[in-house]
Design a protein around this nucleic acid. Structure first.
Lengths: 299, 299
DNA sequence: GCCTGCAAAGAACATATGTTCTGAAATCGC
DNA sequence: GCGATTTCAGAACATATGTTCTTTGCAGGC
Protein backbone atom coordinates (compact mmCIF):
# COMPACT_ATOMS: atom_id res chain seq x y z
CA UNK A 1 0.00 0.00 0.00
CA UNK A 2 2.51 2.57 1.15
CA UNK A 3 5.11 1.21 -1.23
CA UNK A 4 2.91 1.83 -4.25
CA UNK A 5 2.34 5.43 -3.33
CA UNK A 6 6.06 5.90 -2.92
CA UNK A 7 6.70 4.34 -6.32
CA UNK A 8 4.15 6.64 -7.88
CA UNK A 9 5.88 9.64 -6.40
CA UNK A 10 9.27 8.41 -7.59
CA UNK A 11 7.96 7.90 -11.10
CA UNK A 12 6.53 11.37 -11.16
CA UNK A 13 9.81 12.79 -9.88
CA UNK A 14 11.82 10.94 -12.51
CA UNK A 15 9.42 11.64 -15.31
CA UNK A 16 8.99 15.30 -14.52
CA UNK A 17 12.56 16.13 -13.65
CA UNK A 18 13.45 17.50 -17.05
CA UNK A 19 10.76 20.13 -16.73
CA UNK A 20 11.98 21.32 -13.34
CA UNK A 21 14.14 24.24 -12.38
CA UNK A 22 17.74 23.47 -11.35
CA UNK A 23 17.19 23.51 -7.61
CA UNK A 24 14.02 21.49 -7.83
CA UNK A 25 15.96 18.96 -9.87
CA UNK A 26 18.58 18.68 -7.18
CA UNK A 27 15.87 18.14 -4.60
CA UNK A 28 14.09 15.56 -6.76
CA UNK A 29 17.30 13.72 -7.52
CA UNK A 30 18.16 13.70 -3.85
CA UNK A 31 14.87 12.03 -3.01
CA UNK A 32 15.28 9.44 -5.75
CA UNK A 33 18.84 8.66 -4.70
CA UNK A 34 18.36 8.73 -0.94
CA UNK A 35 14.88 7.41 -0.41
CA UNK A 36 15.47 6.09 3.08
CA UNK A 37 17.35 9.08 4.39
CA UNK A 38 14.67 11.33 2.98
CA UNK A 39 12.12 9.34 4.93
CA UNK A 40 13.55 10.07 8.34
CA UNK A 41 15.46 13.31 8.07
CA UNK A 42 13.79 16.61 8.89
CA UNK A 43 13.43 19.05 6.06
CA UNK A 44 16.47 21.15 6.89
CA UNK A 45 18.74 18.12 7.05
CA UNK A 46 17.53 16.88 3.68
CA UNK A 47 17.97 20.38 2.32
CA UNK A 48 21.58 20.55 3.53
CA UNK A 49 22.40 17.14 2.14
CA UNK A 50 20.83 17.94 -1.20
CA UNK A 51 22.50 21.31 -1.32
CA UNK A 52 19.31 23.36 -1.52
CA UNK A 53 17.31 25.46 0.89
CA UNK A 54 14.54 24.07 3.02
CA UNK A 55 11.72 25.71 1.19
CA UNK A 56 12.87 24.23 -2.09
CA UNK A 57 11.50 20.99 -0.72
CA UNK A 58 8.32 22.76 0.30
CA UNK A 59 7.96 24.09 -3.23
CA UNK A 60 8.61 20.61 -4.63
CA UNK A 61 5.87 19.17 -2.45
CA UNK A 62 3.56 21.95 -3.55
CA UNK A 63 4.39 21.44 -7.20
CA UNK A 64 3.58 17.75 -6.90
CA UNK A 65 0.19 18.64 -5.53
CA UNK A 66 0.71 17.77 -1.88
CA UNK A 67 -0.78 19.79 0.93
CA UNK A 68 2.58 20.09 2.60
CA UNK A 69 6.06 18.68 2.93
CA UNK A 70 4.95 16.08 5.43
CA UNK A 71 2.52 14.54 2.97
CA UNK A 72 5.33 14.11 0.49
CA UNK A 73 7.64 12.51 3.03
CA UNK A 74 5.04 10.28 4.67
CA UNK A 75 5.06 7.49 2.02
CA UNK A 76 8.83 7.25 2.36
CA UNK A 77 8.48 6.95 6.11
CA UNK A 78 6.02 4.08 6.01
CA UNK A 79 7.85 2.31 3.21
CA UNK A 80 10.94 2.47 5.38
CA UNK A 81 9.03 0.69 8.10
CA UNK A 82 7.50 -1.92 5.85
CA UNK A 83 10.68 -2.78 4.05
CA UNK A 84 12.77 -2.97 7.14
CA UNK A 85 10.45 -5.24 9.02
CA UNK A 86 10.12 -7.50 6.03
CA UNK A 87 13.82 -7.75 5.39
CA UNK A 88 15.23 -8.51 8.79
CA UNK A 89 17.73 -11.31 8.65
CA UNK A 90 18.19 -13.26 5.47
CA UNK A 91 14.51 -13.88 4.92
CA UNK A 92 14.59 -12.21 1.53
CA UNK A 93 17.08 -14.76 0.25
CA UNK A 94 15.08 -17.66 1.60
CA UNK A 95 11.96 -16.28 -0.03
CA UNK A 96 13.76 -16.09 -3.34
CA UNK A 97 14.72 -19.73 -3.07
CA UNK A 98 11.08 -20.69 -3.20
CA UNK A 99 9.93 -18.36 -5.94
CA UNK A 100 10.49 -20.53 -8.95
CA UNK A 101 13.40 -22.16 -10.72
CA UNK A 102 15.07 -19.03 -12.00
CA UNK A 103 14.74 -17.20 -8.69
CA UNK A 104 16.14 -20.18 -6.84
CA UNK A 105 19.15 -20.33 -9.13
CA UNK A 106 19.52 -16.59 -8.75
CA UNK A 107 19.39 -16.89 -4.97
CA UNK A 108 22.15 -19.49 -5.11
CA UNK A 109 24.47 -17.14 -6.96
CA UNK A 110 23.69 -14.24 -4.63
CA UNK A 111 24.42 -16.38 -1.62
CA UNK A 112 27.66 -17.47 -3.19
CA UNK A 113 28.68 -13.87 -3.83
CA UNK A 114 28.04 -12.90 -0.24
CA UNK A 115 29.89 -15.94 1.00
CA UNK A 116 33.03 -15.30 -1.01
CA UNK A 117 33.02 -11.65 0.01
CA UNK A 118 32.66 -12.53 3.66
CA UNK A 119 35.23 -15.27 3.43
CA UNK A 120 37.74 -13.03 1.65
CA UNK A 121 37.31 -10.19 4.10
CA UNK A 122 37.66 -12.56 7.01
CA UNK A 123 41.02 -13.67 5.73
CA UNK A 124 42.18 -10.08 5.48
CA UNK A 125 43.34 -9.68 9.06
CA UNK A 126 44.18 -6.20 10.33
CA UNK A 127 47.78 -7.31 10.54
CA UNK A 128 47.89 -8.28 6.87
CA UNK A 129 46.02 -5.18 5.79
CA UNK A 130 48.39 -2.96 7.71
CA UNK A 131 51.43 -4.77 6.36
CA UNK A 132 50.19 -4.44 2.79
CA UNK A 133 49.48 -0.75 3.18
CA UNK A 134 52.90 -0.22 4.75
CA UNK A 135 54.74 -2.12 2.02
CA UNK A 136 52.99 -0.22 -0.75
CA UNK A 137 53.33 3.16 0.91
CA UNK A 138 56.97 2.90 1.84
CA UNK A 139 58.22 1.37 -1.38
CA UNK A 140 60.34 3.40 -3.77
CA UNK A 141 58.19 2.10 -6.61
CA UNK A 142 55.19 -0.20 -6.33
CA UNK A 143 54.24 -2.25 -9.37
CA UNK A 144 50.79 -3.78 -9.71
CA UNK A 145 50.50 -6.55 -12.23
CA UNK A 146 47.85 -8.88 -13.57
CA UNK A 147 46.69 -10.21 -16.91
CA UNK A 148 43.48 -11.17 -18.65
CA UNK A 149 40.36 -10.84 -16.51
CA UNK A 150 42.22 -10.06 -13.29
CA UNK A 151 43.81 -7.15 -15.15
CA UNK A 152 40.54 -5.38 -14.39
CA UNK A 153 41.27 -5.64 -10.68
CA UNK A 154 44.81 -4.35 -11.06
CA UNK A 155 43.58 -1.53 -13.27
CA UNK A 156 41.07 -0.43 -10.64
CA UNK A 157 43.52 -0.70 -7.78
CA UNK A 158 46.15 1.27 -9.62
CA UNK A 159 43.66 3.90 -10.71
CA UNK A 160 42.66 4.77 -7.18
CA UNK A 161 45.94 4.05 -5.41
CA UNK A 162 47.98 6.31 -7.64
CA UNK A 163 45.90 9.30 -6.55
CA UNK A 164 47.30 8.79 -3.10
CA UNK A 165 50.62 7.19 -4.01
CA UNK A 166 52.12 8.53 -7.23
CA UNK A 167 54.81 5.87 -7.18
CA UNK A 168 52.34 3.06 -7.94
CA UNK A 169 52.60 1.72 -11.49
CA UNK A 170 50.40 -0.63 -13.46
CA UNK A 171 52.20 -3.19 -15.57
CA UNK A 172 51.91 -4.19 -18.30
CA UNK A 173 50.74 -0.78 -19.30
CA UNK A 174 49.26 -1.85 -22.61
CA UNK A 175 50.48 -4.83 -24.50
CA UNK A 176 53.48 -6.96 -23.82
CA UNK A 177 54.62 -8.74 -20.74
CA UNK A 178 55.03 -7.21 -17.27
CA UNK A 179 58.68 -8.27 -17.12
CA UNK A 180 59.40 -5.90 -20.02
CA UNK A 181 58.61 -3.03 -17.71
CA UNK A 182 60.59 -4.34 -14.78
CA UNK A 183 64.02 -3.67 -16.19
CA UNK A 184 65.06 -1.19 -13.56
CA UNK A 185 63.53 -2.59 -10.39
CA UNK A 186 65.45 -2.46 -7.13
CA UNK A 187 65.18 -4.21 -3.77
CA UNK A 188 63.39 -1.19 -2.37
CA UNK A 189 60.54 -1.73 -4.85
CA UNK A 190 57.41 -3.80 -4.31
CA UNK A 191 55.49 -6.02 -6.69
CA UNK A 192 51.83 -6.69 -6.08
CA UNK A 193 50.59 -9.51 -8.28
CA UNK A 194 46.96 -10.51 -8.78
CA UNK A 195 46.25 -13.84 -10.39
CA UNK A 196 43.62 -16.55 -10.35
CA UNK A 197 43.35 -19.91 -12.07
CA UNK A 198 44.36 -20.53 -14.71
CA UNK A 199 47.43 -18.67 -13.49
CA UNK A 200 49.10 -16.52 -16.05
CA UNK A 201 52.60 -17.40 -17.19
CA UNK A 202 53.39 -13.70 -17.49
CA UNK A 203 52.47 -13.03 -13.90
CA UNK A 204 54.48 -15.99 -12.72
CA UNK A 205 57.48 -14.73 -14.66
CA UNK A 206 57.06 -11.34 -13.02
CA UNK A 207 56.94 -12.97 -9.60
CA UNK A 208 60.13 -14.90 -10.34
CA UNK A 209 61.91 -11.82 -11.57
CA UNK A 210 60.81 -9.92 -8.48
CA UNK A 211 62.22 -12.63 -6.26
CA UNK A 212 65.54 -12.59 -8.07
CA UNK A 213 65.69 -8.81 -7.82
CA UNK A 214 65.16 -8.89 -4.09
CA UNK A 215 61.89 -6.95 -4.28
CA UNK A 216 59.19 -7.43 -1.73
CA UNK A 217 56.27 -9.38 -3.14
CA UNK A 218 52.57 -9.13 -2.34
CA UNK A 219 50.43 -11.86 -3.84
CA UNK A 220 46.67 -11.61 -4.13
CA UNK A 221 45.33 -14.98 -5.17
CA UNK A 222 43.21 -17.94 -4.21
CA UNK A 223 46.25 -20.04 -3.43
CA UNK A 224 49.68 -19.43 -2.02
CA UNK A 225 51.05 -22.11 -4.32
CA UNK A 226 50.87 -20.58 -7.75
CA UNK A 227 53.90 -22.17 -9.27
CA UNK A 228 57.10 -23.82 -8.09
CA UNK A 229 59.77 -21.68 -6.46
CA UNK A 230 57.49 -18.77 -5.84
CA UNK A 231 57.06 -17.28 -2.43
CA UNK A 232 55.41 -14.07 -1.45
CA UNK A 233 56.42 -11.86 1.46
CA UNK A 234 52.77 -11.16 2.01
CA UNK A 235 50.02 -13.44 0.77
CA UNK A 236 46.47 -12.15 0.65
CA UNK A 237 44.09 -14.99 0.10
CA UNK A 238 40.72 -14.33 -1.46
CA UNK A 239 37.92 -16.67 -2.31
CA UNK A 240 36.79 -16.86 -5.93
CA UNK A 241 34.83 -20.08 -6.02
CA UNK A 242 31.71 -20.15 -8.15
CA UNK A 243 29.10 -22.50 -9.48
CA UNK A 244 30.31 -22.13 -13.02
CA UNK A 245 33.54 -22.37 -14.92
CA UNK A 246 34.90 -18.89 -14.27
CA UNK A 247 35.80 -17.10 -11.07
CA UNK A 248 33.83 -14.53 -9.12
CA UNK A 249 35.85 -11.43 -8.30
CA UNK A 250 33.57 -9.70 -5.81
CA UNK A 251 35.67 -10.97 -2.90
CA UNK A 252 38.88 -9.76 -4.49
CA UNK A 253 37.32 -6.38 -5.18
CA UNK A 254 36.21 -6.07 -1.57
CA UNK A 255 39.74 -6.79 -0.37
CA UNK A 256 41.16 -4.20 -2.78
CA UNK A 257 38.61 -1.62 -1.63
CA UNK A 258 39.72 -2.25 1.89
CA UNK A 259 43.42 -1.93 1.09
CA UNK A 260 42.74 1.31 -0.74
CA UNK A 261 41.02 2.65 2.33
CA UNK A 262 44.08 2.02 4.44
CA UNK A 263 46.41 3.49 1.85
CA UNK A 264 44.39 6.67 1.68
CA UNK A 265 44.08 6.83 5.45
CA UNK A 266 47.85 6.41 5.78
CA UNK A 267 48.34 9.16 3.26
CA UNK A 268 46.54 11.51 5.59
CA UNK A 269 45.50 15.00 4.62
CA UNK A 270 47.87 15.15 1.67
CA UNK A 271 46.30 12.08 0.06
CA UNK A 272 42.77 13.30 0.68
CA UNK A 273 43.69 16.58 -0.93
CA UNK A 274 45.18 14.91 -3.96
CA UNK A 275 42.09 12.78 -4.42
CA UNK A 276 39.69 15.67 -4.13
CA UNK A 277 41.79 17.53 -6.67
CA UNK A 278 41.33 14.63 -9.09
CA UNK A 279 37.64 14.66 -8.31
CA UNK A 280 37.14 18.36 -8.98
CA UNK A 281 39.23 18.08 -12.12
CA UNK A 282 36.89 15.41 -13.38
CA UNK A 283 33.78 17.23 -12.39
CA UNK A 284 34.63 20.01 -14.77
CA UNK A 285 33.82 17.52 -17.45
CA UNK A 286 30.90 15.54 -16.16
CA UNK A 287 29.15 18.30 -14.31
CA UNK A 288 25.61 18.04 -15.47
CA UNK A 289 23.38 18.26 -12.47
CA UNK A 290 25.74 20.26 -10.36
CA UNK A 291 26.31 22.63 -13.23
CA UNK A 292 26.85 26.08 -11.75
CA UNK A 293 25.94 25.38 -8.20
CA UNK A 294 28.06 25.73 -5.13
CA UNK A 295 28.91 22.33 -3.83
CA UNK A 296 27.41 22.06 -0.37
CA UNK A 297 28.70 18.95 1.25
CA UNK A 298 27.66 17.68 4.63
CA UNK A 299 30.30 17.19 7.31
CA UNK B 1 28.60 0.88 13.21
CA UNK B 2 25.03 1.87 14.07
CA UNK B 3 23.86 -1.71 14.02
CA UNK B 4 26.24 -2.68 16.79
CA UNK B 5 25.18 0.12 19.09
CA UNK B 6 21.55 -0.75 18.53
CA UNK B 7 22.22 -4.36 19.41
CA UNK B 8 24.01 -3.30 22.58
CA UNK B 9 21.07 -1.17 23.65
CA UNK B 10 18.62 -3.98 22.98
CA UNK B 11 20.70 -6.35 25.06
CA UNK B 12 20.80 -3.92 27.95
CA UNK B 13 17.05 -3.36 27.72
CA UNK B 14 16.33 -7.07 27.75
CA UNK B 15 18.87 -7.80 30.45
CA UNK B 16 17.83 -5.02 32.76
CA UNK B 17 14.08 -5.24 32.34
CA UNK B 18 13.58 -7.23 35.55
CA UNK B 19 15.04 -4.47 37.66
CA UNK B 20 12.75 -1.83 36.18
CA UNK B 21 9.60 -0.26 37.47
CA UNK B 22 6.34 -1.29 35.76
CA UNK B 23 6.09 1.67 33.40
CA UNK B 24 9.72 1.54 32.46
CA UNK B 25 9.22 -2.09 31.60
CA UNK B 26 6.39 -1.18 29.28
CA UNK B 27 8.57 1.37 27.57
CA UNK B 28 11.52 -1.02 27.28
CA UNK B 29 9.35 -3.79 25.93
CA UNK B 30 7.84 -1.44 23.41
CA UNK B 31 11.28 -0.54 22.07
CA UNK B 32 12.32 -4.17 21.79
CA UNK B 33 9.09 -5.14 20.07
CA UNK B 34 8.82 -2.16 17.74
CA UNK B 35 12.38 -1.25 16.86
CA UNK B 36 11.64 0.35 13.53
CA UNK B 37 8.63 2.33 14.64
CA UNK B 38 10.55 3.53 17.66
CA UNK B 39 13.21 4.78 15.29
CA UNK B 40 10.98 7.20 13.41
CA UNK B 41 8.18 8.15 15.79
CA UNK B 42 8.45 11.23 17.98
CA UNK B 43 8.47 10.66 21.70
CA UNK B 44 4.78 11.36 22.27
CA UNK B 45 3.71 8.93 19.57
CA UNK B 46 5.88 6.18 21.02
CA UNK B 47 4.50 7.03 24.46
CA UNK B 48 0.92 6.71 23.25
CA UNK B 49 1.59 3.43 21.47
CA UNK B 50 3.39 2.02 24.49
CA UNK B 51 0.71 3.24 26.85
CA UNK B 52 2.98 5.40 28.98
CA UNK B 53 3.68 9.08 29.26
CA UNK B 54 6.31 10.87 27.26
CA UNK B 55 8.68 11.46 30.08
CA UNK B 56 8.75 7.77 30.95
CA UNK B 57 10.88 7.43 27.83
CA UNK B 58 13.00 10.34 28.96
CA UNK B 59 13.54 8.60 32.28
CA UNK B 60 14.41 5.37 30.51
CA UNK B 61 17.02 7.13 28.43
CA UNK B 62 18.40 8.73 31.54
CA UNK B 63 18.52 5.45 33.40
CA UNK B 64 20.47 3.85 30.52
CA UNK B 65 23.02 6.59 30.83
CA UNK B 66 22.14 8.61 27.73
CA UNK B 67 22.28 12.37 27.68
CA UNK B 68 18.78 12.56 26.33
CA UNK B 69 15.99 10.75 24.55
CA UNK B 70 17.45 11.55 21.15
CA UNK B 71 20.66 9.72 21.94
CA UNK B 72 18.68 6.62 22.78
CA UNK B 73 16.63 6.77 19.60
CA UNK B 74 19.51 7.68 17.29
CA UNK B 75 20.92 4.15 16.83
CA UNK B 76 17.46 2.93 15.85
CA UNK B 77 17.21 5.73 13.33
CA UNK B 78 20.51 5.01 11.63
CA UNK B 79 19.88 1.29 11.63
CA UNK B 80 16.67 2.06 9.79
CA UNK B 81 18.69 4.12 7.36
CA UNK B 82 21.23 1.43 6.73
CA UNK B 83 18.20 -0.52 5.59
CA UNK B 84 19.90 -3.77 6.02
CA UNK B 85 22.14 -4.58 8.95
CA UNK B 86 23.92 -7.11 6.82
CA UNK B 87 26.90 -7.34 9.07
CA UNK B 88 25.12 -7.22 12.42
CA UNK B 89 25.90 -10.09 14.70
CA UNK B 90 29.08 -11.25 12.98
CA UNK B 91 31.12 -12.27 16.01
CA UNK B 92 34.52 -12.09 14.30
CA UNK B 93 33.77 -8.54 13.19
CA UNK B 94 32.61 -7.51 16.65
CA UNK B 95 35.81 -8.87 18.10
CA UNK B 96 37.87 -6.86 15.63
CA UNK B 97 36.03 -3.72 16.68
CA UNK B 98 37.52 -4.02 20.14
CA UNK B 99 41.08 -4.95 19.19
CA UNK B 100 42.64 -1.55 18.97
CA UNK B 101 42.26 1.56 16.85
CA UNK B 102 43.55 0.16 13.58
CA UNK B 103 41.55 -3.04 13.89
CA UNK B 104 38.42 -1.07 14.71
CA UNK B 105 38.88 1.10 11.65
CA UNK B 106 39.58 -2.00 9.61
CA UNK B 107 36.42 -3.64 10.93
CA UNK B 108 34.42 -0.60 9.90
CA UNK B 109 35.60 -0.88 6.31
CA UNK B 110 34.96 -4.62 6.20
CA UNK B 111 31.47 -4.09 7.54
CA UNK B 112 30.86 -1.44 4.94
CA UNK B 113 32.05 -3.75 2.15
CA UNK B 114 29.72 -6.51 3.26
CA UNK B 115 26.83 -4.13 3.60
CA UNK B 116 27.17 -2.62 0.15
CA UNK B 117 27.52 -6.06 -1.40
CA UNK B 118 24.39 -7.28 0.35
CA UNK B 119 22.50 -4.14 -0.43
CA UNK B 120 23.48 -4.26 -4.09
CA UNK B 121 22.57 -7.91 -4.47
CA UNK B 122 19.28 -7.33 -2.75
CA UNK B 123 18.38 -4.74 -5.31
CA UNK B 124 19.17 -7.16 -8.13
CA UNK B 125 15.79 -8.88 -8.27
CA UNK B 126 15.44 -12.07 -10.29
CA UNK B 127 13.23 -10.15 -12.66
CA UNK B 128 15.90 -7.54 -13.31
CA UNK B 129 18.65 -10.12 -13.60
CA UNK B 130 16.66 -12.13 -16.08
CA UNK B 131 15.74 -9.05 -18.09
CA UNK B 132 19.39 -7.97 -18.27
CA UNK B 133 20.56 -11.38 -19.35
CA UNK B 134 17.84 -11.53 -21.99
CA UNK B 135 18.61 -8.07 -23.37
CA UNK B 136 22.31 -8.81 -23.64
CA UNK B 137 21.85 -12.26 -25.09
CA UNK B 138 19.28 -11.38 -27.70
CA UNK B 139 20.87 -8.17 -28.91
CA UNK B 140 22.47 -8.02 -32.30
CA UNK B 141 25.41 -6.23 -30.74
CA UNK B 142 25.88 -5.42 -27.08
CA UNK B 143 28.19 -2.56 -26.16
CA UNK B 144 29.63 -2.23 -22.67
CA UNK B 145 30.95 1.21 -21.82
CA UNK B 146 32.56 2.94 -18.88
CA UNK B 147 35.44 5.32 -18.23
CA UNK B 148 38.09 5.94 -15.61
CA UNK B 149 37.92 3.66 -12.59
CA UNK B 150 34.63 2.03 -13.57
CA UNK B 151 36.32 1.05 -16.82
CA UNK B 152 37.80 -1.79 -14.79
CA UNK B 153 34.32 -3.15 -14.20
CA UNK B 154 33.37 -2.91 -17.85
CA UNK B 155 36.65 -4.52 -18.85
CA UNK B 156 36.02 -7.47 -16.57
CA UNK B 157 32.42 -7.89 -17.62
CA UNK B 158 33.31 -7.78 -21.28
CA UNK B 159 36.21 -10.15 -20.84
CA UNK B 160 34.06 -12.90 -19.40
CA UNK B 161 30.82 -12.17 -21.24
CA UNK B 162 32.40 -12.29 -24.68
CA UNK B 163 33.43 -15.90 -24.09
CA UNK B 164 29.77 -16.75 -24.02
CA UNK B 165 28.45 -13.97 -26.23
CA UNK B 166 30.82 -13.03 -29.05
CA UNK B 167 28.65 -10.07 -29.97
CA UNK B 168 29.59 -8.18 -26.76
CA UNK B 169 31.95 -5.26 -27.35
CA UNK B 170 33.88 -3.05 -24.95
CA UNK B 171 33.94 0.65 -25.82
CA UNK B 172 36.02 2.68 -25.86
CA UNK B 173 38.46 0.00 -26.84
CA UNK B 174 41.56 2.06 -26.06
CA UNK B 175 41.59 5.79 -26.17
CA UNK B 176 38.94 8.10 -27.43
CA UNK B 177 35.30 8.40 -26.62
CA UNK B 178 32.74 5.60 -26.68
CA UNK B 179 30.57 7.50 -29.15
CA UNK B 180 33.35 7.21 -31.71
CA UNK B 181 32.73 3.50 -31.78
CA UNK B 182 28.97 3.73 -31.94
CA UNK B 183 28.74 4.92 -35.53
CA UNK B 184 26.85 1.92 -36.81
CA UNK B 185 24.52 1.07 -33.96
CA UNK B 186 20.96 -0.04 -34.65
CA UNK B 187 17.77 -0.34 -32.62
CA UNK B 188 18.44 -4.05 -32.21
CA UNK B 189 21.63 -3.25 -30.32
CA UNK B 190 22.03 -2.80 -26.57
CA UNK B 191 24.19 -0.40 -24.60
CA UNK B 192 25.22 -1.29 -21.09
CA UNK B 193 26.72 1.72 -19.31
CA UNK B 194 28.52 1.67 -15.97
CA UNK B 195 29.11 4.96 -14.21
CA UNK B 196 29.45 6.35 -10.72
CA UNK B 197 29.92 9.86 -9.39
CA UNK B 198 31.43 11.99 -10.69
CA UNK B 199 29.56 10.80 -13.75
CA UNK B 200 31.56 10.78 -16.93
CA UNK B 201 30.57 13.14 -19.71
CA UNK B 202 31.62 10.52 -22.26
CA UNK B 203 29.32 7.93 -20.77
CA UNK B 204 26.45 10.39 -20.67
CA UNK B 205 27.04 11.21 -24.33
CA UNK B 206 26.98 7.53 -25.13
CA UNK B 207 23.68 7.15 -23.27
CA UNK B 208 22.19 10.07 -25.18
CA UNK B 209 23.33 8.68 -28.50
CA UNK B 210 21.93 5.29 -27.61
CA UNK B 211 18.56 6.82 -26.82
CA UNK B 212 18.49 8.69 -30.11
CA UNK B 213 19.43 5.52 -31.98
CA UNK B 214 16.57 3.61 -30.45
CA UNK B 215 18.88 1.15 -28.74
CA UNK B 216 17.92 -0.55 -25.53
CA UNK B 217 19.84 0.84 -22.58
CA UNK B 218 21.01 -0.90 -19.42
CA UNK B 219 22.39 1.42 -16.75
CA UNK B 220 24.48 0.20 -13.86
CA UNK B 221 24.89 3.05 -11.41
CA UNK B 222 24.16 4.37 -7.97
CA UNK B 223 21.43 6.66 -9.25
CA UNK B 224 18.73 6.47 -11.86
CA UNK B 225 19.16 10.18 -12.48
CA UNK B 226 22.58 10.60 -14.03
CA UNK B 227 21.89 13.59 -16.20
CA UNK B 228 18.89 15.33 -17.73
CA UNK B 229 16.97 13.60 -20.49
CA UNK B 230 18.46 10.21 -19.82
CA UNK B 231 16.34 7.20 -19.15
CA UNK B 232 17.35 3.59 -19.11
CA UNK B 233 15.21 0.66 -20.17
CA UNK B 234 16.71 -1.30 -17.33
CA UNK B 235 18.27 0.32 -14.31
CA UNK B 236 20.47 -1.77 -12.03
CA UNK B 237 21.15 0.09 -8.83
CA UNK B 238 24.23 -0.74 -6.82
CA UNK B 239 25.49 0.70 -3.58
CA UNK B 240 28.96 2.29 -3.60
CA UNK B 241 28.94 4.32 -0.39
CA UNK B 242 32.13 4.44 1.56
CA UNK B 243 33.75 6.21 4.47
CA UNK B 244 36.22 8.01 2.27
CA UNK B 245 36.21 10.16 -0.82
CA UNK B 246 36.10 7.44 -3.44
CA UNK B 247 33.57 4.71 -4.14
CA UNK B 248 33.72 1.03 -3.24
CA UNK B 249 33.08 -1.25 -6.20
CA UNK B 250 32.65 -4.59 -4.47
CA UNK B 251 28.86 -4.35 -4.73
CA UNK B 252 29.04 -3.54 -8.43
CA UNK B 253 31.40 -6.44 -8.98
CA UNK B 254 29.05 -8.82 -7.19
CA UNK B 255 26.19 -7.72 -9.41
CA UNK B 256 28.30 -8.20 -12.54
CA UNK B 257 29.39 -11.65 -11.36
CA UNK B 258 25.76 -12.51 -10.96
CA UNK B 259 24.78 -11.25 -14.39
CA UNK B 260 27.61 -13.20 -15.93
CA UNK B 261 26.33 -16.33 -14.30
CA UNK B 262 22.94 -15.90 -15.91
CA UNK B 263 24.45 -15.10 -19.28
CA UNK B 264 26.55 -18.24 -19.23
CA UNK B 265 23.64 -20.30 -18.00
CA UNK B 266 21.47 -18.97 -20.78
CA UNK B 267 24.15 -19.81 -23.27
CA UNK B 268 23.83 -23.44 -22.33
CA UNK B 269 26.19 -26.13 -23.52
CA UNK B 270 27.52 -24.03 -26.36
CA UNK B 271 28.67 -21.26 -24.03
CA UNK B 272 30.22 -23.68 -21.54
CA UNK B 273 32.12 -25.25 -24.38
CA UNK B 274 33.37 -21.92 -25.66
CA UNK B 275 34.56 -20.97 -22.20
CA UNK B 276 36.40 -24.20 -21.58
CA UNK B 277 38.05 -23.79 -24.94
CA UNK B 278 39.33 -20.39 -23.81
CA UNK B 279 40.45 -21.96 -20.57
CA UNK B 280 42.41 -24.75 -22.17
CA UNK B 281 43.92 -22.34 -24.65
CA UNK B 282 45.23 -20.29 -21.77
CA UNK B 283 46.44 -23.27 -19.84
CA UNK B 284 48.84 -24.15 -22.61
CA UNK B 285 50.68 -21.05 -21.60
CA UNK B 286 50.31 -20.89 -17.87
CA UNK B 287 50.30 -24.55 -17.09
CA UNK B 288 52.78 -24.84 -14.30
CA UNK B 289 51.30 -26.86 -11.53
CA UNK B 290 48.46 -28.24 -13.49
CA UNK B 291 50.64 -29.69 -16.21
CA UNK B 292 50.44 -33.27 -15.11
CA UNK B 293 47.69 -32.89 -12.56
CA UNK B 294 44.03 -33.76 -12.90
CA UNK B 295 41.92 -30.60 -12.85
CA UNK B 296 40.07 -30.61 -9.59
CA UNK B 297 37.00 -28.44 -9.86
CA UNK B 298 34.74 -27.97 -6.89
CA UNK B 299 31.30 -29.32 -7.43
C1' DG C 1 -1.15 8.70 61.92
C1' DC C 2 2.52 10.98 59.61
C1' DC C 3 6.53 11.05 57.10
C1' DT C 4 9.80 9.62 53.57
C1' DG C 5 10.87 7.80 49.07
C1' DC C 6 9.74 6.48 44.71
C1' DA C 7 6.95 6.32 40.38
C1' DA C 8 4.32 8.48 37.25
C1' DA C 9 1.54 11.96 34.81
C1' DG C 10 0.54 16.58 33.31
C1' DA C 11 1.74 21.32 32.68
C1' DA C 12 5.31 24.67 31.41
C1' DC C 13 9.26 25.74 28.96
C1' DA C 14 12.97 26.00 25.34
C1' DT C 15 14.25 24.26 21.09
C1' DA C 16 13.44 22.22 16.53
C1' DT C 17 10.65 21.88 12.62
C1' DG C 18 7.50 23.04 8.79
C1' DT C 19 5.56 26.98 6.60
C1' DT C 20 4.99 31.59 4.91
C1' DC C 21 6.65 35.97 3.49
C1' DT C 22 9.86 39.14 1.43
C1' DG C 23 13.42 40.75 -1.34
C1' DA C 24 17.30 39.66 -4.26
C1' DA C 25 19.18 37.29 -8.17
C1' DA C 26 18.71 34.94 -12.40
C1' DT C 27 16.21 34.06 -16.59
C1' DC C 28 13.16 34.99 -20.28
C1' DG C 29 10.71 37.76 -23.70
C1' DC C 30 10.64 41.51 -26.55
C1' DG D 1 19.21 46.43 -23.46
C1' DC D 2 15.23 46.55 -20.14
C1' DG D 3 11.12 45.18 -17.90
C1' DA D 4 8.44 41.04 -16.52
C1' DT D 5 8.64 36.66 -14.67
C1' DT D 6 10.54 32.96 -12.33
C1' DT D 7 13.58 31.01 -9.04
C1' DC D 8 15.57 30.94 -4.82
C1' DA D 9 17.48 31.85 -0.02
C1' DG D 10 16.96 33.96 4.46
C1' DA D 11 14.11 35.81 7.99
C1' DA D 12 9.78 35.51 10.53
C1' DC D 13 6.19 32.88 12.24
C1' DA D 14 3.21 29.04 14.22
C1' DT D 15 3.31 24.46 15.51
C1' DA D 16 5.49 20.18 17.11
C1' DT D 17 8.87 18.07 19.89
C1' DG D 18 12.02 17.06 23.72
C1' DT D 19 12.92 18.41 28.35
C1' DT D 20 12.13 20.07 32.92
C1' DC D 21 9.34 21.18 36.79
C1' DT D 22 5.56 20.38 39.71
C1' DT D 23 2.07 17.74 41.51
C1' DT D 24 -0.31 13.53 42.62
C1' DG D 25 -0.62 8.85 44.09
C1' DC D 26 1.07 4.93 46.39
C1' DA D 27 3.94 2.05 49.47
C1' DG D 28 6.58 1.01 53.43
C1' DG D 29 8.73 2.46 57.99
C1' DC D 30 8.73 4.67 62.54
Amino acid sequence: MGAEVKQTILNRLIGGIDAMSPRLRLAAKYIVDNQSAFGIDPIRTSADKAGVSANTFVRLADRLGFDGFDDLREPFRVSLLERYDGSAGEAWLDDLSHAGAFAADHARTLRNEMDIVKQSLRLLTPHKAEAAAALLTEARNAYVTATRSSYALAYYFHYVARMSLPHVHLIPRHMGSPVDEMVSVEPSDVLMAITFPPYSADTIDALRLARRSGMKVILLSDSELIAPAIQADLFLKVSVQSHHSFSCYAGAMAVLDSLLHHIVTRGGKAAELRISRYQSLREDFGAYWRAKLPRLRRE
